[in-house]
Simulated assay, not measured.
Amino acid sequence: MSRWDTSNIPDQSGRTFIVTGANSGLGAAAVRALAGAGAQVILACRNMAKGERVAAEIGPRAQVRKLDLADLASVREFADSVDKADVLINNAGVMAVPQGRTADGFEMQVGTNHLGHFALTGLLLDKISDRVVTVSSGAHRTGKIDLEDLNWEHRKYQRWPAYGQAKLANLMFANELHRRLTAAGSPKISVAAHPGYASTELQSHTESILDTIMKYGNRLLAQSAEMGALPELFAATDNVEPGAYYGPDGWLGMHGYPARSSSSAASKDEEVASGLWELSEKLTGVTFSIGN
C-alpha cells in the first residue's frame, strides 16, 4: 500500500466505533477521522471534560461515556452501557509512569494498558460485529512477560521495562485473540497496530525530567497525532489481514504511512501468550465467549 491516509477510509455510514482514550492524542484524531467518514463514534474516556470538548467538535455523530481502564468496576459499567458496535479500538494507554496501582491492585501500566483492555474486550466481544484493534508500540521489543510477577510485586519496579511488558502484552493479546477467533470459526477479527513516534500527551505524565526531554523530542522528531493514528485507522476500516500488525512504513517504523509491521520473536510465543491469557482471565475475572 502507498500513502494511505484518511481520504482512503471507506464510507463508514451506519457503523459504530468504540475508541478508548479518545479525549486526546491518537484517540481524538481517530474519532475525528471516523466521524468524518460517516461513522458513529463512542469516546470511551477517563477525562470526561476533555472528551466532551472533542465530541463537541465532531457533532451529533459523537457521544462520550466514562471509562477508567484502571478500575474494573468502571470497565464493567461501561460495557453494560453498550448495546452493540462494529469495531472496538483499544487505543488508550499510559507510559513510563511512576510506580502505582490500579483500583484492583494491578501495576498501573500493565493494569491500564493490558488488563483493562483485556477485560473490556471480553465483556464487549459478543456485542462487536466486525473487529477488535489493539494498539501496541515499538516498545514491545523491549518487553518481557513475567507470568510469575506480572504486577511487579516481587521485583524492583522499573518504569520502562514495565511499559515494554505492557505493550508486549497488548500485542500478544491481539495475536492470541486472533488465534482463538480463528479456531472457533468466528467471522470477527483481531488486528494490532502501532503509531510509531507520534506527538501526544502520552509523553507528559512520567512526573520526571523525561517529561521535558520528551517535550522537545516531540517537537523535533515526532510525527503528528493525526499521522500516528493512521495505522489504527487502517486496521479498523480497511481490508486487512486478520492477525496482522500495522505501523508506519518509514525509518525504523517511526514515521510514515500504514504498512505491515514486523514484531519481536517474543510477541509470537504462543505458549507464553496462552499463559498470559489464562492469567489475565484469573486476575480480571473476565472470560471470553468466542464462537459467534
Rank of each mutant, 00 (worst) to 15 (best):
G36F: 01
L69D: 11
V82I: 15
K50Q: 14
L67E: 05
C45D: 07
A92H: 11
A55N: 13
D83M: 12
D104M: 10
V97D: 10
F118Y: 15
S81L: 11
M108R: 14
N23W: 00
L123P: 15
E57K: 02
G116L: 03
D80M: 05
I42L: 12
F106K: 06
A22Q: 13
C45W: 00
G100R: 10
G36W: 03
K84W: 03
L67H: 11
L34G: 03
V97M: 15
A70F: 03
F106S: 04
F78K: 00
S81Q: 15
Q109S: 08
A35T: 04
V75T: 04
R53H: 08
G27I: 02
A29E: 15
G122T: 00
V64N: 04
F106A: 03
G27E: 07
S24T: 13
G116D: 08
T102A: 11
A39W: 06
A33F: 04
R46D: 01
G21E: 03
V31Q: 08
E77Q: 12
L34V: 06
G25L: 09
E52R: 12
F118W: 15
L43E: 08
F106R: 11
S74D: 07
V64E: 10
R65W: 04
M108D: 14
P98T: 09
V110C: 12
A70P: 07
R76M: 02
N91W: 03
I42Q: 13
G25I: 05
A79L: 00
C45E: 07
M48F: 06
E107F: 08
A103I: 00
L88S: 09
R101Q: 12
L43K: 01
R101K: 14
V97K: 13
L43N: 03
L43I: 02
A35S: 06
M108Q: 13
G27P: 15
A30R: 10
A35Q: 09
L88E: 11
P60Y: 04
N90H: 11
I58H: 02
V110P: 15
D104T: 06
I58T: 06
N90D: 15
L120G: 07
V54C: 02
V54W: 00
A29K: 11
V31S: 02
V94S: 11
R76T: 01
G51A: 05
D83W: 06
I42M: 10
M95S: 10
S81H: 14
P98F: 14
I89D: 12
I42K: 06
A22R: 08
K66V: 00
L115Q: 13
A39L: 04
L124M: 10
P98H: 12
G21T: 02
A73I: 00
M95V: 01
S74P: 08
K84L: 05
K84Y: 01
C45S: 14
D68Q: 10
F106I: 02
E77K: 14
V97P: 11
A33W: 00
A33L: 10
A56R: 15
N91M: 05
G116K: 05
M48Q: 14
A22N: 11
T112G: 14
A96E: 03
L43A: 04
L72E: 01
R101D: 07
A62Y: 01
T102L: 13
T121H: 10
